[in-house]
Design a protein around this nucleic acid. Structure first.
Lengths: 114, 114
DNA sequence: TATAATTACTACGACAGGTAAAGTACGACA
DNA sequence: TGTCGTACTTTACCTGTCGTAGTAATTATA
C-alpha cells in the first residue's frame, strides 16, 4: 500500500487529470482512481473533498449542482483554464521529481516505469 | 523548483541513501544532496535536522559525536540494520508510486527516467 | 417489511512533516 | 573588529491527510 505522504502533493494533480476527461463528482472520481490504479491507490473521502475545496479556492476547478431528479444531489466539478495550466506545470514537475528521487533510490528489477 | 510536498515522505529515504555510503553529519549531507541533484533539490536545514531526530527515534540511524579538535563539534550518524531494511522498503514503494502517478500525468518529451 | 448496503457529501478535530525566523557556537581571514 | 563559512538548536506555525461521525436519499437483500 502506498503511503499518502508520498502521493501528497499529487492528489490535486490526480483529480485534475480525471476532470480533463470530463466533468465529474466526488464519488465517481474516487471510483475512477481505484479503477485506474487497480485498487493500488485509494483516496480517502475526506482527502478528496478537502482537495476539491482547495482546488476551487485556487480557481483550478468550478462547481455546479447536477440535476438529478432522484438520489442525493451531486456537486459536479469542471476544470478551468487556470487548472489546466497548473496541471501542465505539475506534469513537468513530476518529470523533475522522478529524476531527483531516482538518484537516491536503488531500483531493483523492474522500476515500474513507462 | 520542486515543492516539498512532493518529496515529503522521501526525505528520510534520501538521507538514508547517503548514509549507506558512509557515516556523515548534517552539513555534509545537506551539501551532498545539493551536489547529487545539481542544486535541483535543496533540503532545508530544519527539515534535515528534524528528519535526523525522527530517524533516530525510529531506530533507523544512530548518532555519535565526532572528535573534532577545532570548529563546532559535529554529530555523526550511522545507518542501522533496521534503517537499511526500511530503505529497501521505500525503494520498492517508490517503484509502485511511480507507476501510480504516471497513470495520471501526461509525460511531455523526455520523462526524465532511467 | 425491516434493515443493510450503496451513493453522495459535510463537519470536526488531531497529527505529522516541513519551514521561517532566530539564535548559539566556533574558526579563519582580512 | 567584522564578516563569512561551518554546524546545529529551539520555537512556533502552516498545510494536507485522515479518523470519526453524522446526514440524507436510493437500492438490494433477507
Amino acid at each position: 500500500m502506498i503511503s499518502s505522504d508520498v502521493i501528497r502533493g499529487y492528489n490535486d494533480t490526480i483529480i485534475l487529470s480525471l476532470l480533463l476527461e470530463g466533468d465529474s463528482y466526488g464519488y465517481e472520481i474516487s471510483k475512477n482512481i481505484r479503477a485506474v490504479t487497480d485498487e493500488q491507490y485509494v483516496m480517502k473521502e475526506t482527502t478528496l473533498y478537502s482537495a476539491f475545496s482547495r482546488l476551487e479556492k485556487n480557481g483550478y476547478i468550478e462547481s455546479y449542482y447536477g440535476e438529478e431528479t432522484q438520489g442525493k444531489r451531486r456537486t459536479y466539478f469542471r476544470i478551468t483554464q487556470s487548472g489546466m495550466t497548473y496541471y501542465k506545470e505539475k506534469c513537468e514537475e513530476w518529470g523533475l521529481t522522478k529524476k531527483v528521487i531516482n538518484k537516491f533510490v536503488k531500483e531493483l528489477k523492474d522500476s515500474g516505469d513507462h
